[in-house]
Design a protein around this nucleic acid. Structure first.
Lengths: 143, 143
DNA sequence: ACATAAAAAGATAAAAAACTCTTTTTATTC
DNA sequence: GAATAAAAAGAGTTTTTTATCTTTTTATGT
């Protein structure tokens, strides 16, 4: 579904969002531990998310990654688009280059609805939502 | 979503099903052309599908791949399982090792319904269905 | 200013997926 | 039974993804 890069990225953003709420900055090492991602790999991912302004960071002692309150409005879709591109929106399930309403692939019609729901899911779930749900023990991020 | 291997495999099976209906055997070269897959690559894929008995073949002149009437009951899910494994059934969208009803990931509940629909889609669409729909011009397999 | 702690950047390596080439086996037809 | 046509099998290459290692830059506290 998502690339490993994207999976790690999502987990990391949720993790940072959580800690960030307490006004803390989080070091790569902690993010790696907290998400189960290899440290240097998650470093690259955070850099990319940083370039795309989805997360912020400060170098040096007491530095680390953090989110502004503002950033809690970031949706899963934003992260996915930043790391995996727009494939979720544009690609045919069967990988056909030509597949649209006029020239539908064998499952195009049936998939339309599924795709719509999936996109709604990633667009409507924000880091802020996850923070709240996590507080109330409604879900877990286990490795 | 699916691996390239799987995408090619699905297209190839639909293609063979179509031709097979006319009692023809189809050579790799034709399958490659018909699906846009590299010939030697689709060869490997057909071999694997052959081992798993989803398609049959005969060597030598006038040989090629074909399906029995029986095989038209093969579903997309059968092909996906043969080539990509059971990930679609078992894996968490976020790639978490632990994600279930007791320890749900952040989008587990919402994804449950989507997954269910997706699985229904691949299980209920068979090669036979595609043959029929194709005959009535309801869909296309373009590259 | 210096030591230190952290991220950023760059380069490299390992693993997996996608793709290709060559040889062997099997069936067919003449 | 020789020539031929096709798939099967095996080995190899390329590309992409995932992961690691090293160096540089930047900020902080003393």
């Amino acid at each position: 579904m998502f690339s490993k890069t994207c999976e790690y990225g999502i987990k990391a953003m949720i993790f940072v969002a959580q800690k960030s709420k307490q006004g803390k900055r989080i070091a790569l090492k902690e993010i790696a531990k907290g998400t189960g991602a290899p440290e240097h790999f998650i470093a690259k991912i955070m850099q990319e998310l940083g370039r795309k302004k989805l997360v912020h960071s400060i170098k040096g002692p007491n530095g680390g990654f953090y989110l502004e309150a503002f950033d809690l409005r970031t949706s899963l879709a934003d992260i996915v688009k930043a790391l995996d591109g727009n494939g979720v929106y544009t690609d045919c399930v069967l990988g056909l280059k030509v597949c649209n309403e006029k020239k539908p692939c064998p499952v195009h019609d049936e998939y339309r609805d599924i795709k719509k729901k999936f996109i709604r899911m990633i667009e409507e779930n924000t880091l802020g939502d996850f923070n709240e749900k996590l507080d109330s023990g409604q879900f877990f991020l286990v490795n």
